[in-house]
Amino acid sequence: MIIIMAGGRSSRMGKEKPVLKVGDKPMILRVYEEAEKVGETVVALSKNTPKTRELCLKEGIPFIETPGEGYVKDTQWLLSELGPFISVSADLPFVKSSDIYSILRAFSGEESLTGVLPLKLVPKDLHPVVYRGYAIVGLNGVGIEGEKFFEFRNPLLALNVNTPEELKLARRIAELVER
């Protein structure tokens, strides 16, 4: 199962991120359309994302309501309720079905896979979270125990939209690549 994580508070953005548009559609729809090509997909919502809930209801997108106590706790809750899954952040506007498919194929369900991007592939204007010499991306396999890295090659996975500046950049990129 693929779960789109869309229940965060969006504190750095100041607005509910999943419903913000990049290109001609809300980020949650961009991510959902790519994930749905790969397999069964559900959106994880919380009390923090009422507009995302409304959009899911309007578009007929299946969702599950989490406690809304933060990414880690909600991920743990989802794992206990549903078992191992592929997690995709709702604020990854340039994730492709091929990215999701590649981690799904490598994921056994036992050991967690943390999606990473080699720093040499990260575009210069981006400032991703760096851990052990890699950029962490919001596409993971959430398993029962352990953890290893899974390397991606799509440089746009480094753009996780968390701030107004990153949203502007994502919109500029969408204009360029989606003509």
Score class of each variant (00 low, 15 high):
Val95Glu: 00
Tyr32Asp: 09
Lys37Leu: 10
Pro84Trp: 09
Lys73Met: 08
Ile61Asp: 06
Lys25Leu: 14
Arg153Gly: 13
Ile100Pro: 00
Ser97Lys: 02
Ile61Cys: 03
Trp77Val: 04
Val42Lys: 14
Leu57Glu: 15
Asn140His: 15
Gly60Met: 02
Leu57Pro: 01
Tyr71Ser: 09
Ala174Met: 12
Asn162Gly: 05
Glu165Val: 09
Gln76Thr: 05
Ile103Arg: 05
Ala44Gly: 11
Lys47Asn: 09
Pro26Glu: 15
Ala174Leu: 05
Arg9Gln: 11
Thr114Trp: 13
Leu139Asp: 01
Lys120Arg: 15
Ser108Leu: 08
Leu57Arg: 13
Lys17His: 00
Met13Lys: 04
Asn154Thr: 01
Pro93Ala: 03
Pro164Asn: 04
Ser97Phe: 00
Val177Asn: 02
Val177Gly: 01
Val161Ala: 05
Ala6His: 09
Ser112Asp: 05
Thr163Pro: 00
Val22Ile: 11
Met27Ala: 03
Ala158Asp: 08
Arg153Met: 10
Gly143Ser: 09
Glu110Pro: 00
Val43Thr: 09
Val142Lys: 14
Phe63Tyr: 15
Gly39Gln: 06
Val161Phe: 10
Thr66Phe: 08
Ser89Arg: 09
Gln76Val: 08
Gly14Met: 06
Leu45Met: 10
Arg9Ser: 13
Pro93Met: 02
Glu165Ile: 07
Lys17Phe: 01
Leu29Phe: 05
Ala35His: 04
Asn160Val: 08
Gly7Trp: 12
Gly68Glu: 11
Pro93Phe: 06
Asn154His: 04
Ser89His: 13
Leu119Cys: 08
Leu20Ala: 03
Ser10Ala: 15
Glu151His: 09
Pro26Ile: 11
Glu145Asp: 10
Lys73Glu: 15
Lys47Gly: 04
Glu59Trp: 10
Glu59Cys: 01
Val43Tyr: 04
Pro18Val: 08
Lys120Val: 12
Pro84Gly: 00
Leu167Pro: 02
Leu92His: 01
Arg132His: 10
Ala174Phe: 13
Ala158Phe: 11
Leu79Asp: 03
Thr114Met: 14
Leu119Ser: 05
Pro128Thr: 10
Gly60Trp: 14
Asp24Glu: 15
Thr75Leu: 13
Lys47Thr: 12
Tyr71Val: 05
Asp91Arg: 11
Arg153Lys: 13
Gly138Val: 06
Asp24Met: 07
Pro26Thr: 03
Met27Gly: 02
Ser89Ala: 07
Gly138Tyr: 11
Leu157Lys: 04
Ile4Gly: 06
Phe85His: 13
Ile64Pro: 00
Gly39Ser: 11
Gly133Arg: 06
Val130Gly: 07
Tyr32Lys: 04
Glu147Ala: 14
Thr75Pro: 03
Val19Asn: 10
Pro128His: 11
Tyr32Phe: 15
